[in-house]
Amino acid sequence: MRLSAPVYHLKRRARLLSRRENVPLHTALDRIAGEEGFGSWSLLAAKAAEVKPAGTLLARLLPGDMVLVAARPGQGKTLMSLELAVAAMKQGSRAVFFTLEYMHADILDRFRDIGIDPAAFDHQFEFDNSDAINADYVIETLRSAPRGTLAVIDYLQLLDQKRENPELMVQIRALKSFARERGLVLVFISQVDRSFDSSGKPVPDIGDIRLPNPLDLSLFDKACFLNKGEIRFHAT
């Protein structure tokens, strides 16, 4: 199934349509679904749920993996990472979301954007937006986490923004060693360089990761790139 945009973008379009034309939201959703070739929004949502790319990516991951989820702004990398966390929790694992960007209420809203009730995972999901987040902080927080825990770090380029933090390369090497030792999966949301041009290639790749500071990207095991509803997985 190929949609013109991610499902959450289509929902936003429907909300705007509902307000602009003063029609019920369910009517607007059905109209957007019709534009995508579906008879109703429920049919589109059901079909989208069957092919959640997060499940495809999770099936490729092994304990100890370091993963990049990268895209330009507004392409769904945060939601993709949350869907990956949900897929892991549905399999019985714990998930932790470290962020230097979002408040807790923002993440709860993102859960709802992907059709998930956050209360369903109360005892499996942990949110952390401490200003102290860096490699040492993540390692200390996850030191007693059970094997198979999936942690999302939002986002890669902010880890060494503070001068007192170690260089990014040093932090990623420490996190890689820790993830391997403890059997955890670490997912890093990453920015893509502004020079990326989708007219040349539909989806960014490892060469498009924005690196304000030196980093050996071979420290990551797998990567997921998103652009305009298209998703591609790569081994790094």
Rank of each mutant, 00 (worst) to 15 (best):
Q124C: 10
L150C: 11
N227V: 10
F225N: 03
E140G: 12
R147G: 10
K176F: 02
F220Y: 10
N165E: 04
L68Q: 02
L57Y: 06
Q191A: 12
K47Y: 04
H26A: 13
L44P: 03
L156W: 04
S218I: 05
D106H: 15
V23W: 03
Q75G: 05
L168N: 03
A14H: 09
K77G: 01
D109P: 00
A70C: 03
I189F: 07
L226S: 01
L10W: 11
L150H: 07
P202V: 03
Q157G: 05
V192Y: 07
K47Q: 14
T99Y: 00
Y137G: 09
D208C: 03
F97V: 02
G207V: 10
Q124N: 12
G115S: 02
L219T: 15
Y137N: 07
N165F: 02
L79R: 12
K47V: 13
M169Y: 06
L44V: 07
F220L: 09
A179W: 05
R2D: 13
A145Q: 07
M103P: 07
R15L: 14
A223M: 04
I209G: 03
K11N: 09
R60D: 00
T149D: 07
I189K: 08
R112L: 14
A14K: 09
S199W: 12
Y8C: 09
V187T: 04
D117H: 08
D136F: 10
L61T: 04
K176D: 11
N22C: 07
F38S: 03
P24K: 08
Y102W: 11
S130I: 12
E140Y: 11
L58H: 00
G92S: 09
D205T: 11
I116N: 06
I139S: 06
Y137M: 08
S144E: 14
